[in-house]
Design a binder for these strands. Structure first.
Lengths: 350, 350
DNA sequence: CGCTCGTGCTGAATCGGATTAGCTGAGACT
DNA sequence: AGTCTCAGCTAATCCGATTCAGCACGAGCG
């Protein structure tokens, strides 16, 4: 059962050449002259013997393993962490590389140990990822090795990094509403602490787009980014008699809570209120009506990071990845304003 | 910057011993006599030089890499695929192993290629996983290598496999309702095609528990395992005037649809209908009232598989992993039957 | 006093490739 | 005829561990 390994020497012998020649042929190197005749014999022998080079032996010499490490603070999350891994893996595979994964749980000691373990196994480079966009400086042990930051904003902007274009996403979300005819009474739902990159940028994007159209946010319903708090906050909002033309929820979980609060207030989405959101989790397509959401391009993020890592020339800047809009059924033109002087004004100001 | 590697020879020299001796000390082998004195010198030198053995060189000789491969049909899914990877990774790490991940998308050619790629890199074993429990026979290329099936039922029951105890989960779900006092008018929601392991087993478990208590399923509401179809089917069910005491949803997505249909029918969960479900996705805790669900133990599945894979003595049987119940707010005692002879009968038959 | 035996250690081979240095023989050129 | 060039190939070394096969030395023994 334990088939004796076919080595390069076996191939060489069968082809009637030296190990050296066989090696050069297998490596496809042209800097050494080898006759078409000999090359063919080697290739043929390799095929016949079903030769597979021993990568460990090769690595010992070359210091290259065609292997990369994905070290992340969190592997699992309710979002599609899997998509990120998938994007990384499939891109690695495309380049004939394999992918180690590892989680640090944010512990620096574990992190250093993990990177060391991967280094011991000769990984050619690292994707240093955070599941949620946050500021982070790569650990010291990474110095001198090739790596790409994923979903982290480093102080040093010249470090290679890949980030979702949250600001663009904010603009896109607002744009969706603007295009549908909304202008006033657009509210943001969800708190936006300065330290949270996604929150800050999404909000900035929204404000930017609104301002560009001569409008502005009508206000913010502050709440944590979870269904329950959002539900509570928006119920109160509606209870106070507030009227909204559209709600921009900072993520889908918030939108979920918003849907419930709206239903309870007797409001129909999207006829009475339009709702747009961020993340495009599965929830978005399960909601009724299905939720229009700006997606986090997990797959693309992974893909881009690995692409950058494996590129011939190392990157030295941050690469924003566009966040695609998934239009569904939660946006409609605003209800025509009821007998009020504002309607006319709105039309003229457009 | 490219620090010259510290090799075993450096350590040996500094300790004033041969490479052989240093090797034995580092490997902690006792089958060769080495004086405490020499051992101490080697250890000391290694520490001083910050020696790290070159695993590639070691592997070349030993054929062991302290590395395992997780090959799965699907890495990403709406369920916590990440938890499965996490369980596998952290257990591997516990045993000083690192984890390769790979996805085949169910393609046999890709699968064989991927396994081969991992084999080329010397993995010590495989976790062959399916994200959804299904029948599967391990690919031929795995023959002769160590592996554990995860979430797959092989025809050959003597292959090492790890499976969620779906039947037990079915029993647990029914037990929850039984304990709350439900007996009659318990319906199953979701189709149960014979080919789908989880469906078949969950249903069997439910029926088993019910039968044991002298009851039986009042019926099944057939529908696909998604919110929308479930919503439609249950709406129709209620529309036909059917009354249910409790609904056992075959997954959380179904329960989500059921919640909506119930709300529309003017029924309150759990006062009018109790609902239990399977999977314990995040959805379960976001629903109002929060959904009682039997969890798929993704982390445990990964953990168990790797534990089995790395065990000293290879396993040769299937290992069921219990599915824990997450009790939340969707189960309550049944509404007392309204003026009808049945109420008394129910009580007496208990 | 010579022999065996156990202790503590070492030299050299090995794993399977990549790579450097150089060799051989034929034709071109002087 | 002698020298150069160049195509085409090979021997030997290296990468950094593990491991096999002994070797030297002192103690114990008859």
């Amino acid at each position: 059962m334990p088939t004796p390994r076919v080595t390069l020497l076996d191939v060489a012998r069968r082809a009637g050449v030296s190990r050296t020649t066989a090696s050069f042929v297998m490596a496809g190197r042209t800097d050494m002259r080898i006759s078409a005749e000999a090359e063919h014999r080697v290739l043929h022998a390799a095929r016949e013997l079903n030769y597979r080079p021993n990568l460990m032996a090769r690595s010992l010499r070359t210091k290259l393993t065609r292997t990369i490490g994905l070290v992340s603070d969190t592997i699992a999350s309710e979002a599609f962490a899997g998509e990120l891994i998938r994007g990384s893996f499939s891109t690695a595979l495309l380049h004939q590389h394999l992918l180690f994964v590892g989680e640090t749980e944010g512990d620096d000691t574990v992190e250093t140990q993990l990177v060391q373990d991967m280094l011991d196994r000769g990984v050619d480079g690292f994707v240093y990822a955070s599941m949620y966009t946050r500021p982070a400086r790569p650990p010291a042990i990474l110095r001198g090795h090739r790596f790409v930051l994923l979903n982290c904003v480093a102080e040093d902007q010249r470090l290679p990094a890949v980030l979702p274009d949250e600001r663009g996403a904010g603009r896109a979300a607002a744009g969706l509403l603007l295009d549908a005819g909304h202008r006033d009474r657009i509210f943001l739902v969800g708190e936006t602490p300065d330290g949270v990159y996604a929150a800050r940028e999404r909000r900035a994007g929204v404000e930017e787009a609104l301002a560009r159209a001569g409008g502005a946010l009508a206000g913010t319903v502050e709440c944590l980014w979870w269904p329950e708090p959002a539900y509570e906050a928006v119920r109160e909002f509606f209870g106070d008699g507030a009227r909204a033309s559209a709600l921009i929820c900072l993520n889908d979980r918030i939108a979920f809570g918003v849907y419930q609060a709206a239903a309870e207030a007797g409001l129909t989405v999207p006829d009475d209120v339009s709702v747009v959101s961020f993340d495009d989790s599965h929830l978005a397509s399960w909601l009724r009506p299905a939720l229009t959401s700006v997606a986090i391009p997990h797959f693309e993020l992974g893909r881009t990071a690995v692409e950058l890592l494996l590129a011939d020339v190392p990157a030295h800047d941050v690469h924003p990845v566009p966040m695609p809009v998934r239009e569904r059924g939660s946006v409609a033109p605003p209800r025509p304003a009821r007998a009020s002087g504002h309607a006319g004004a709105d039309i003229h100001s457009g």
